Simulated assay, not measured.
Amino acid sequence: MRKTTRYPVSGANSLWHVYKTVPFIKVIKNFIIIQLARYTPFLACKNWMYRTFLRMNIGEQTSFALMVMLDIMYPEKIKVGKNTIIGYNTTILTHEYLIDEYRIGDIEIGDEVMIGANSTILPGVTIGDGAIVSAGTLVHQDVPVGSFVGGNPMQIIYTAEEMKERNKNNAVYIVE
């Protein structure tokens, strides 16, 4: 189960209550920063913008590819470890507005994680260190450390142990 906090609403669907949940000026500021960063080819500049203006916790040498879409309402709830790659056009959400409620949850992405292009990460998910998320994956639950996951909905393709076994004869992974 994803770790989200649920807030019930009455009357119109929860999206009609959006500016009761997050200040309008914050959404405008976040939108501008995120859109500028989406097109910025300079990785260090993107990370600086995210840390400085969006108060995100981002590890050293982490790379956000072109067109990554961060949550506009609560980007400060996204934490990304060091030396991680977030693939092209990935969407990372920390909120979801439903009919009778809205939910907010932190996203934690570990160190040396690789997230393939066009993936979507839903609120309240933790992706463990060294995990690999295949392109186009809907990450709707936690990803175990070192595992390889993919699909819609996400499934574990290889556990950390299976990945280690697959890579033991691969020259890239042999330490001398």
Rank of each mutant, 00 (worst) to 15 (best):
V80N: 03
Y39R: 14
K79D: 00
T52F: 06
A171Y: 13
R51H: 02
I78Q: 00
T120N: 10
I156V: 15
N118E: 13
T5N: 15
R55N: 15
E161R: 10
I86F: 01
S134M: 13
A160M: 07
N13I: 09
A135Y: 13
A131W: 01
G110E: 08
G124R: 00
V133P: 01
F42M: 08
R51E: 08
T52R: 12
Y7Q: 05
A171F: 12
K168I: 11
P144R: 06
T84M: 05
Y39P: 04
A135G: 15
R51I: 05
Q155G: 12
T84R: 02
I99Y: 06
M163K: 10
V172A: 12
I25N: 14
R103A: 12
I72L: 07
I85K: 05
A12C: 06
L122H: 11
Y173S: 06
L36Q: 10
T90L: 12
M114G: 15
Q61C: 03
R6D: 07
I174Q: 14
A12P: 02
I127N: 14
A171E: 15
L70Y: 00
I174W: 01
K79V: 04
N118S: 13
G146R: 02
V113G: 10
I132A: 05
T62R: 07
Q141D: 01
I99A: 10
A131G: 01
M1E: 13
Q35V: 10
I132P: 01
T4V: 15
E165T: 09
N47L: 15
E76Q: 11
L93E: 03
E162S: 07
G151F: 03
G105M: 01
F42S: 05
G11C: 01
H95T: 04
K79Q: 12
R38N: 13
G105H: 00
T90H: 02
A44T: 06
T21V: 13
V27Y: 09
M154Y: 02
I58F: 09
G81M: 08
G110D: 11
I157K: 10
I104T: 07
S63M: 04
P8Y: 10
V175W: 06
I115S: 02
E60G: 13
L93W: 10
M56G: 04
G11E: 01
E108V: 12
I121A: 13
N57K: 14
L98D: 03
K79A: 12
T137Y: 03
R166F: 12
I127H: 13
L43F: 14
V145I: 14
T40E: 10
V143Q: 01
A65D: 03
V143G: 07
I28D: 03
M1C: 11
I25Y: 13
E60A: 14
I34Y: 11
K3V: 00
L70F: 04
G11Y: 02
A12Q: 10
N169H: 11
S119W: 08
N152A: 09
K26P: 04
Y102K: 00
V113P: 08
N89Y: 06
L66S: 15
E101F: 14
R38C: 09
I99G: 07
L122P: 07
A135K: 11
A160G: 10
E165S: 08
R51N: 12
T84G: 02
G130V: 10
N167G: 07
L93Y: 10
Y19S: 09
E101Y: 13
E108H: 15
D129L: 00
P123T: 05
A44W: 04
T21D: 11
Q61P: 03
I121S: 08
E176L: 02
T159Q: 07
Y173W: 11
